[in-house]
Design a protein around this nucleic acid. Structure first.
Lengths: 235, 235
DNA sequence: GCGCTATATTGAACGATGTTCAATTAGATT
DNA sequence: AATCTAATTGAACATCGTTCAATATAGCGC
């Protein structure tokens, strides 16, 4: 599915193809490079190749050797750019969170009511989880232990996802305190996330085909009803 | 942390100790046994040893060789009783679900209102997740792909956990249909489970120390308010 | 154009993993 | 006591992530 170039010594790569692949082969080269890819390009190549394989087979069917082969290098090279295999997966998750967040943000627009907007966002969340099962699994249900260095702004992105919900909740109940809004957003989104997670592991056990969608609908409308009517002074 | 017996050939085990370990060494032996443990005892020993190690270090720090050493056998033996290492983990999860379910069932009793009962069950859920982090992680957030043979009644136990919630919901709104009760129970419990899962991976991002408890409180009271007032003919 | 140097990349190794299976061992049966 | 049969071994296999000395190459100064 990906391109293979493992012929560094014998066959030379077609220069035109090389340009196509790198699309900027004369970047800021400083020292003796063996391939046509800059450091940053290589990093992107690896992440993209890993992302593709994760989407196809799932994270635990993706090995370091496979990634290396997909980008036309040796496994050892990976460790000159990334700390770990987990480090690579962390960067893949970063992409996943970015797309998930933009999907949710997009779903918020073009809705009559705030409630409809939140529901649309919940459905977008479920849809992403259903369409990119393996990727969603890698993001949330697989426990990735952080390496020594913190993930590069990964937690910030989750925070931003929450803030989308918080904004909507603030609209509905402007007198609520910041802490209340934060808690409510997490309460609400825990429900959506929990539904997606349970559905992903086939643990919903309801006959209805669109059970997850109905559950989120129920969840959001129920929660918002009380959120709008709750006084700001509530415990 | 566990007992080691890897001296089958040279040193004989103290018979008193052996009885202590097996507590019924003369069961229904039929054929040539090498050790003092029956087939069923061995199965329990393995599961218990694995459970203990999972609780201490987490599932991905537990290897087949470690389990074998903990029960005083060779790795190969495990495969005469279990299909897989995953199969062992599945049985460990069975125990985990049993205790989690009994904890929840216990929390339901001795409460003034039905709402208080459900909240108590939610807190019990959170408490278990917090106290047995690694075990909870193995149960839910780690994606275990089922072997060929179905897990022995594992899904039934999750179903039973849901039924505890369903029973409470039925009390509050007796006119609701079966499907409505099922969906509502999953909506509600997805919130509780999602909260536990997010808290487990430190993705709640709220300063409050008991944020998870407050969230569940908010979630349950909000949801029940609409559940009691919703007509049975909804949607 | 030619060596020189610096470094990107290799490739082979290491230890550890889950799993298999022929060989062996020992209790039960005769 | 000999035999049978099943439990258990132990060594091997393939594969994994990861490391690192060795190597090959690209750009620099000349």
């Amino acid at each position: 599915m990906f391109f293979n170039l493992q012929n560094h010594s014998h066959t030379l790569i077609d220069p035109a193809l090389a340009i196509l692949l790198t699309n900027s082969p004369y970047d800021d080269l400083q020292m003796g490079r063996r391939s046509d890819h800059s450091r940053e390009e290589l990093k992107d190549l690896i992440i993209q190749a890993t992302l593709e394989m994760v989407r196809e087979r799932g994270a635990d069917q993706v090995t370091a050797r496979q990634i290396a082969q997909a980008v036309g290098y040796t496994p050892g090279m990976l460790y000159s750019i990334f700390i770990n295999l987990q480090d690579i997966f962390l960067h893949v998750n970063q992409i996943g969170l970015r797309t998930l967040q933009s999907l949710c943000a997009e779903a918020l627009k073009k809705n009559d009511s705030t409630e409809a907007a939140i529901k649309a966002m919940g459905l977008a969340y479920l849809t992403f989880a259903a369409q990119h099962t393996h990727q969603f699994d890698l993001m949330f249900t697989r426990h990735i232990q952080h390496p020594d260095s913190k993930p590069p702004g990964l937690s910030d992105q989750i925070r931003m996802l929450f803030e989308l919900v918080e904004d909507q909740l603030r609209i509905l109940n402007p007198s609520a305190s910041d802490l209340q809004v934060k808690l409510a957003a997490r309460a609400l989104w825990s429900g959506v996330h929990g539904t997606a997670a349970l559905r992903l592991s086939d643990q919903l056990y309801v006959d209805a085909p669109d059970a997850d969608r109905e559950i989120v609908d129920l969840l959001v409308s129920g929660f918002l009803r009380q959120w709008q009517h709750s006084p700001s002074s509530q415990h």
